[in-house]
Amino acid sequence: MDHDPIAHPASMQQFLRYARVTGIDLERVLYPELLAILTDSENVEFVPAYAMVETLQLCAIVAERPDLGAAFASWCNLRGYGPLSLLWDHCPTVADSIRVSGRFLHLETEAIGSRLAEEGDDIVLQQFMMIPARYGGSQFLECTMTLQMRVLQLIMGDDWHPLRIEFAHPPPPRMTVHRGLFRCPLVYGADRTALVLHRSELGRRTPNGNAHLLAFLEQQLERTGRNQRRDAAQTVHQIIAANLAGGAITLERTAQLLSVSPRSLQRRLSDCGQSFASVLAAERRRLAEEYFATQSKPNLAELAYRLGYTEASAASRFLRAHMRTGARPLARRAHQQRSSAGGSSDTTA
């Protein structure tokens, strides 16, 4: 991949102010590398996409704030985000707002993807993780769902609320903030994270919309975003990495998330000199290497789950076919490398 997934720093800049206002002790909560990214966010052009995901999740856990993602998103200034926030005020209709949000979401963050689905009279705005979430992504997704609702309220008014919101993660222990904020049915443990509205609402208009200005701004952002654009293989790498564990990712599922047909996705990958199978194998090799490098007592059943297999024997066959060895030699080699690195560090010190 050409570069690690990135995000605009505006969200982290706002969270830094939110933490100060609400008394979250970031130095106590965040590990040094993450704290440095957060405090430096006002002086950089991009931040790693994982940083906001991990910041929200760790702060929610340590500060015992299960409502943190939604509460932060309801507090922040919509006009204080990155390039995409330039467009929201100028969208003439709800359909325009949904379209530009999906088109330019990557300029805000490459941590998530989005797709629109039509189910009868329901319009489903789905969001899904594009990067692995080491500590979980529930707070980040609740944050982005809240922002999606607030953007739609710019057109439909503060009293508007979705038909329902679905979350793939379990419910928080306390629901007071969520119920008061969303004021619609909340479905937890769903097979997706999505906001649902009625088809008739797509045509809702705002007197503040300006189609000509919106088109101009879109052209400007299109030019801005070209340097960030990734090829199909890079995008598929991200989706597989975020969804591989447990066997939930397939060619068909990946194509569905990207709103293309499986044949079209294979063709795009072929243009990059790859196939879905080759990208999947590459991600499995990377995850296997990472697993053995970080686990002092590797377990083949756990590795199988991480690689998307239901049986340990399938993981064992993958290691022999693609890494030319078995689990025990890989674990022994990783142990020797850790011991060597530890010895070098002691000598240097």
Rank of each mutant, 00 (worst) to 15 (best):
F318G: 10
T176W: 04
E166M: 00
D40L: 01
D89N: 14
R79Y: 14
M129S: 12
A301G: 05
P83R: 01
V62G: 08
P132E: 10
A111Q: 03
P66T: 15
E54A: 04
R317D: 15
F276M: 07
P298D: 06
Y309I: 10
L56M: 12
N208A: 15
G82M: 08
H169Y: 05
Q220G: 07
G247M: 03
H178Y: 11
G203F: 00
A19G: 07
G113N: 01
S270P: 02
P9T: 13
L152N: 09
L107N: 04
N43C: 07
T250M: 05
Q266H: 09
R328K: 08
A133P: 00
A168S: 07
R150C: 15
R230Y: 01
V94T: 10
E64S: 10
V177A: 14
W160A: 04
A248L: 00
L214A: 13
I155V: 15
L107F: 04
D191A: 02
D122C: 02
Q274G: 06
Q57D: 13
E290V: 02
L141F: 06
L107E: 09
G137Y: 01
L197Q: 01
V53R: 01
G136Q: 01
L34R: 04
S339K: 00
A314I: 10
M323F: 08
E289L: 03
L330T: 04
V100H: 04
T176C: 03
R99M: 05
A281F: 06
G82Y: 09
L105Q: 08
E201S: 06
P172H: 03
T254P: 01
A277R: 12
A245V: 03
A70G: 09
E119A: 06
D158I: 15
C272H: 10
F292G: 01
T224Q: 10
L258M: 14
M130V: 06
T55N: 06
Q139E: 15
L26T: 12
R320H: 14
S85K: 10
F276D: 08
V94Y: 00
S270D: 15
I155T: 13
E110V: 06
A63P: 00
R317K: 12
S138Q: 10
E119S: 07
L269P: 00
G82V: 12
